[in-house]
Simulated assay, not measured.
Amino acid sequence: MATNLRAAVVITHAALPHLVKTKGNIINVSSIAGMSPSAGIGHYCTSKAALDQFSRCVALEVAPKGVRVNTINPGPVRTDIFRNIGLSDERLHANGKGLPLGFVSETEEVGNLMLYLASDKARSITGSSFVIDVGALLIGANTVMEIIQN
């Protein structure tokens, strides 16, 4: 909760005066784990679900001031987290073929979604969660982890 929720709460409250002045926006990075329960990582799922709800509440509070707040909810993305648990890029690539779209997302894809949401092209979007997960939410977090790790 300290990492996934409290940090976002503290940073949001610190940044809001500037964001109101500049009509900026907030994009919180959550996870599909906040949308689907998963055995063994309930604490993580709960913290991400709380981040999603916090983001919606803040979006409602600051919308009249011209500030937008959204979340991005990634599924499996090729990052150091997989290397840190002992998965090589080759194994991650091979295992990703078992996911609905047949691959693991790249960080650039999440970045592109973030750029869109931060731009004026998304000026009508607030209080929303955007899933970018190669279809992983369709099969559930536990199944995704079994596919990725095996």
Rank of each mutant, 00 (worst) to 15 (best):
V58Y: 00
A7Q: 13
N70V: 05
I81P: 05
R123W: 01
R56W: 03
Q53P: 00
L19E: 08
G42A: 11
G40E: 14
F130L: 08
R56Q: 12
N4K: 00
V69H: 03
A118R: 06
K65C: 06
T71S: 12
V9D: 12
D89K: 07
L51W: 00
A136I: 10
M114E: 04
A8Y: 11
T143Q: 14
N95M: 11
A122W: 01
S129P: 02
A8E: 10
L16A: 01
T143P: 04
L87S: 03
I26L: 07
N142H: 14
I125A: 05
G75T: 14
G34E: 00
T107V: 13
V144R: 01
G34L: 10
G102N: 05
G75I: 06
N70S: 08
D52I: 14
P100Y: 06
F130E: 04
R78D: 10
A141D: 11
N25S: 15
N70D: 11
L5S: 04
A94Q: 12
T3I: 10
E106G: 07
V69K: 01
E146I: 05
T12G: 08
C57I: 10
I32A: 03
P37W: 13
L92W: 07
L115A: 14
D133Y: 06
E106L: 11
I125Q: 13
L60F: 08
D80F: 11
R91A: 12
E106A: 10
L87A: 15
G111Q: 13
Q149V: 04
L92C: 13
L16F: 07
T12W: 02
N84L: 10
L51H: 02
A59S: 13
R78M: 09
I72Y: 10
G24D: 11
I139S: 08
C45V: 02
N28T: 09
L99K: 05
V144F: 09
N84H: 15
H43L: 05
C57P: 01
N70K: 05
Q53A: 10
P37M: 13
A14F: 09
M1H: 08
N4S: 03
M1C: 06
N4H: 09
K48D: 12
R83P: 08
P17W: 02
G102E: 11
A63W: 03
E61V: 03
R56N: 04
R68H: 05
K65I: 05
L19G: 08
A63H: 06
D133G: 02
L138N: 04
